[in-house]
Each structure stands twice: as C-alpha cells, then as structure tokens.
Amino acid sequence: MNIIVSIKQVPDTTQVRIDPETNTLIREGVESIINPFDMYAIEEGVRLKEKHGGKTIAITMGPPQAEAALKEAISMGCDEGYLISDRAFAGSDTLATGYTLAMAVKKIKDFDIILCGKQASDGDTAQVGPGIATQLDIPQVTYVKKIEDIKDKVATVERMTEEGFEIVKTSLPCLLTVVKEINEPRIPSLKGRMKAKKAIIPTWKAIDLDVDEVRLGLTGSPTWVSKIFTPPPRPKGKIFEGEPEDTTTQLTDLLKDRLV
C-alpha cells in the first residue's frame, strides 16, 4: 500500500509575536516546525506502511527551507520526500495550493491513501486537504480519529463530529484528514535521524508538473487578503486577591446580572 502524506511547514505559533508599532507579525527568530496536525498524519502514514507494507511518501509545497520538514518526516519513517517549490507558486491561496499539490500527487501516480492534518496551525483553513481530493476526484473523509480497518481497497474509519463520531467506509484511493486523537507521533529514532540527514530531497518546480499555469500562485487564487490587523487587546481585567470568601463574593456580585 502506498501512502502520500501532504505536510506544511509553519511558524511555531507559540513563538509568534506582534510588533506593537507596526501591528505586523514578527517572524524573525521564530522557528519553523511541521504543522502540529501533520505530525499525526505522518505517524499514521508510517504506521499504515509498517502494518500493510508499501511505502510512505511525504510532500510539501513551500520555500526551499521547507526541505527541513520533509527530512523530519523521513526521520519519523517516511521513505521519500518531495519539495514542491517555485516562485510561480508564491501567493497561492487554498484553491491554488490544492491544485498544485494534486498535480504533484498525479506525478507520483501510484497511491492508495493521502493523509493530511485536519488543518494548518497558521492558516487554520482545513481546506487544502479536501481541495486535493476534489482536484483528484477521489473521496475524502475529514477529521478522522481512527482507521479501523483497511482491506480489499476499502477503508473503515471513525470521523469526529460535534457529538461524537461516525463510522464511515470509503473506497480507495481516498484522502483522509486526521485529528490529534488518532495517534501519538513517535520521537524519530537515531537510525531515522541518520537516514534523514543523508536523504536527498528532489525539488519539483512548476515545469516538472503537468500544470495549467494560470491556476498557480497569485493568478490562480480567487481570494485576496485586503487587510491584516491585530485584534483589539482585551481590556485590562479586574483581578481579586485575598480571602476566597471575599474574592468570590466580589466576583459573584459583579457577574450576577450577566448570568441570567
């Protein structure tokens, strides 16, 4: 069974700060990490390979330094990594990104399951996974919390919902986006780390993919960011300190009317 894991390198949101003068993101000194949700996708991809055989391929679209994310995926057990990187992809929104990644998947050709994290921690859109599936015209199951079983080209999975979960059967090939509950990503082993260090990551440019150029990058993106701003800071809070008996009375008095 061949598995493709589509991942994204993101700034570590825990380190992102806002410049109060310019109201812009300070990205300097912020470490790049693999989108936390993609870590579950990588782990699941490696586990599926360990269980069913075949290979697990990681792909990412991003700047040249996103190679580090693919190397980390290899250290966790992925067999190959491909970096999809070209100036022509710059400014892609989710539609153009889904299209580009789908074309990369077409180049790999032979796959049974594509895995993605449920969403990326920087954009939080959750649109690229379904975008890839739609462009490839394959079924998808989003928010998967467990892969129960795969046999005879059919996967049975549990899909998270607001109230619990659904058990869904899907034919392969398919795309699954996964949630945290599905597994606990491994710490890359020493052998994995050494393999990753030596791994050669091919870069695919627009010219290497069978793409329609008007569908790439900024031109291929219907959405425009017209304004970016910092949310107004929350007003300074009222903090009570002292005997619990007093502090709780003060708070209750303040909130009484709002609770009804």
Partner: peptide, 19 residues
C-alpha cells in the same frame, strides 16, 4: 561530532517528553 549532537538532541527530547 554531528552524530553525537544528534544523539544528545534525541536523548534530550526523550527526557523532556517521556521522562
């Protein structure tokens, strides 16, 4: 060496996350 740094980082990760 590069390998020793790799080993140290791995062991540190295990220590922080698991130990």
């Amino acid at each position: 060496t590069e390998e020793q740094v790799m080993l140290r980082d791995l062991c540190r990760e295990i220590t922080v996350e698991k130990i």
